[in-house]
């Protein structure tokens, strides 16, 4: 039922090194004119044609929602990953033609919040750049706490401090003055919503602290850009399409399904949103659930899988696709 959206053809207008590990890419529409408007915290899915493999990685849109002649993303290079960020860093040059998806927002502003408390770790700063533009324009109270290793390794902190003054506080891990999450959380007024984006352990730590202080789940928001795990290659049978598909070591199950021209819905491609949930019709082996969506009971039942990040080991897997 869900239709994969038309991708937008773009040209890489600019590639700017921001820190030793982070580059910023600016895309302009090939057709000219304006790109679709977006909301603070939205992401786009960038299509990368890497030989025979088509990767689709989500990146936060970090420009202003009011300047739509281009989209900007920042990519941190991760050496030991399956290659998306390395591809962006080493292969993509100004002038290249690429394709991006229309914007999707799974980390949207809580318009009914009385205050936004934003916690960023490293490259996790990216969704907050556009969020803060909107919050500021809407005159909604916010406070950003940004954890970086040291002054050279944290992208954009100087710009943000300049723009927002005391509403942006930078915590430098190497200086020994990390962020005291508990001290921060106990001071927040009623109706504050907490947004955290950064490495998995940071998100988990912040959530554990917040829950321990009695924060309700409704007020906790996170976004993790989790690249699909790599793993042993396997085969999968798609029952409704009558196809057998091979999933390579550096390819996700969803990417392999897409490469076989089978329509599969998705949004986040990071195991969080639940949109790609797929029925497992037969499984002789072990499902490797890497998502954050299915409940423990659902995992134990083995009737569902999230193909964007999860994998399989064993003799045969049959999916309802």
């Amino acid at each position: 039922m869900a239709v994969r959206p038309q991708s937008i053809k773009v040209r890489v207008a600019e590639v700017v090194p921001v820190t030793p590990l982070v580059k910023r890419f600016r895309f302009v529409p090939l057709a000219g004119g304006l790109l679709p408007a977006f909301s603070g915290g939205a992401h786009t899915v960038v299509e990368m044609h890497d030989g025979a493999v088509v990767r689709r990685n989500p990146y936060s849109l970090m420009g202003s929602p009011d300047e739509l002649d281009s989209y900007q993303i920042s990519v941190r290079k991760v050496e030991d990953s399956r290659g998306g960020s390395v591809f962006m860093h080493e292969r993509v040059k100004a002038g290249d033609e690429m394709a991006v998806s229309p914007p999707v927002n799974l980390f949207a502003i809580a318009w009914d919040a009385r205050k936004h408390l934003l916690l960023a770790g490293g490259i996790g700063i990216t969704p907050f750049v556009s969020q803060m533009i909107q919050l500021d324009r809407s005159e909604m109270p916010f406070e950003l706490h940004y954890c970086i290793r040291n002054d050279d390794r944290g992208p954009y902190w100087r710009d943000l401090q300049q723009r927002y003054g005391r509403r942006v506080q930078v915590h430098r891990a190497e200086s020994g003055l990390g962020m005291d999450v508990e001290a921060l959380l106990v001071m927040q007024p009623l109706g504050t919503h907490l947004f955290v984006c950064g490495p998995g352990p940071m998100i988990e730590g912040v959530y554990a602290t917040a829950r321990g202080l009695g924060w309700p789940e409704e007020n906790l928001h996170s976004e993790r850009f989790q690249a699909p795990a790599t793993g042993a290659a396997f085969d999968v049978v798609l029952r409704r399409s009558s196809k057998r598909v091979h999933v390579g070591t550096h390819e996700s199950l969803l990417e392999a399904i897409e490469a076989a021209d089978v329509e599969a819905p998705y949004l986040c491609r990071g195991g969080a949103c639940g949109q790609c949930e797929t029925g497992v019709l037969a499984c002789d082996g072990r499902l490797i659930h890497n998502d954050h969506y299915l409940s423990a009971e659902e995992r134990a039942a083995g009737r569902k899988i999230m193909p964007c990040v999860s994998r399989f080991e064993g003799r045969e897997l049959v999916l309802d696709l």
Binding site: L185, V186, M187, Q188, P189, L190, G191, T192, L213, G214, W215, N219
Partner: peptide, 10 residues
């Protein structure tokens, strides 16, 4: 009471 309360109030 609510007006003076902080997050972590049930």
């Amino acid at each position: 009471l609510l007006g003076a309360a902080r997050m972590g109030t049930q």
